[in-house]
Nucleic acid binder design. Structure first.
Lengths: 244, 244
DNA sequence: ACCTGAACACCGTTCAAGT
DNA sequence: ACCTGAACACCGTTCAAGT
């Protein structure tokens, strides 16, 4: 019954992969390969031809599974956001109050962003398909969870909507800046830094020059916590104000 | 003495432009044409060849004035931010306190963003050249003004730096979302909406469905004001805390 | 001094054809 | 059923050549 008999065709090449019929390729594998490429080499170098090559296939084959490059990028965004489904710290509805619920969601999005610094700007800036899909929470499942969770916890509809707006713009601002500091975008090409871009002269900018050190320090994590706390305080106000 | 004598060469074409030697092209004109194109037709359709054509010239001519497409986009970002120099409501140093100063600066950036919805994502997401040039305030002049202004008004260096961080991430989150709602990016191509993208079914998302109306309302201006007020309050705290 | 023609090494995408 | 070769209409960029 074992179908794993020794290959009859005696190709002696060591490490020879499957006989010749490769695993047939599928949408998921393509999207994953695209994300991997973006994270490693940047969006600018992601071409259909290179992506095909990385999967052992000609570019044309990809079109069986993906309508085109732009749609592939949309799929990438979707896939990245959906990684939160596998994050056990992110929950679907409040268990210890709405503040804990939103804390978990915010940190979940942050973890996803930090897992893919060069890909996150895509999540942040592809034009949203609808006004209720604000970046970076571009997924109906999570928007529904968000609104349902808050309403469950006593927010009026209007307060929940206002909270959603505040929450997304907080996340977008913080995470895009954090990720771009971590060297996102990887620029036009894998540029080897030959030092040709001489460090900008700060002569005429004494304050920048003096605070250069402080400005270069990375306090992203602490700032995120602090701003998130502040946001939650604001949302708490919003909740009681609206039900007044 | 009048050099404006009637053309000797009797080209009779009505509205004939200059004899044949056009205004010789320059960097500024190229950058302006690029911004115009992006605002009208989106970044995706901006090619060196089309840009050349819009200036009555072959693509190759552009390379006399601009090192390449990527550098052109950097120049576009710079030019857009510099439009604030011509905004009389934006001032270089505080006159009625730091809060008024920052209010003016924030509104100045917002006006620039709203003047170029499809170009603003560029300002927001091109990778910064240095940690002290955080989007969307990507210009040493304004960063220097910001820091100098706050220090002048009694902020410690550290408080000024923290304020700068908060200010930029506030602007980035709000403006990117506001602008993307205004239909930024214009997508891959001037897509004629043939309605082929059927409106996403909201069946499984009852809360989204119910709040769809509220979620589609545009309160960007009011939210901006409110969040800005809140930010300024936070910065005021930061100021006294740090000097304690 | 300023612009261009021709060329190079790429792109995304289509489609008839191969296995 | 799945993949590819060849082709089309583009790209960005270089460089020798034109005026």
């Amino acid at each position: 019954m074992a179908d794993e008999t020794i290959d009859a065709d005696a190709d002696v090449v060591a490490g020879d992969e499957a006989p010749s019929a490769r695993v047939p390729l599928d949408r998921e594998r393509i999207i994953k390969a695209a994300i991997e490429h973006i994270d490693k080499a940047g969006l600018a170098t992601l071409t259909m031809r290179r992506l095909g090559a990385s999967l052992g296939v000609e570019a044309m084959s990809l079109y069986r599974y993906v309508p085109g490059r732009e749609d592939l990028l949309d799929a990438v965004v979707d896939h990245i956001i959906n990684e939160m489904y596998n994050d056990d710290d992110v929950i679907d509805s409040p268990q210890d109050g709405w503040q804990d619920f939103l804390q978990r969601l915010a940190h979940g999005v942050r973890r996803v962003a930090l897992a893919h610094p060069p890909a996150f700007p895509l999540v942040a800036s592809r034009p949203p398909e609808a006004p209720w899909l604000r970046p970076p929470l571009r997924n109906l499942h999570w928007v529904e969870s968000f609104l349902a969770g808050l309403v469950d916890e006593g927010f009026s509809n209007d307060a929940a909507v206002a909270a959603y707006r505040g929450f997304t713009s907080f996340l977008l601002g913080h995470l895009l800046l954090e990720v771009s500091t971590h060297g996102a975008d990887v620029g036009p090409l894998d540029v080897i830094d030959d030092g040709s871009k001489e460090p900008i002269s700060l002569g005429r900018y004494p304050h920048v020059s003096e605070m250069k050190g402080a400005l270069s320090e990375d306090h992203a994590a602490a700032e995120f916590e602090e701003s998130l706390e502040n946001l939650l305080d604001r949302l708490a106000l919003l909740k009681v104000e609206d039900s007044r």
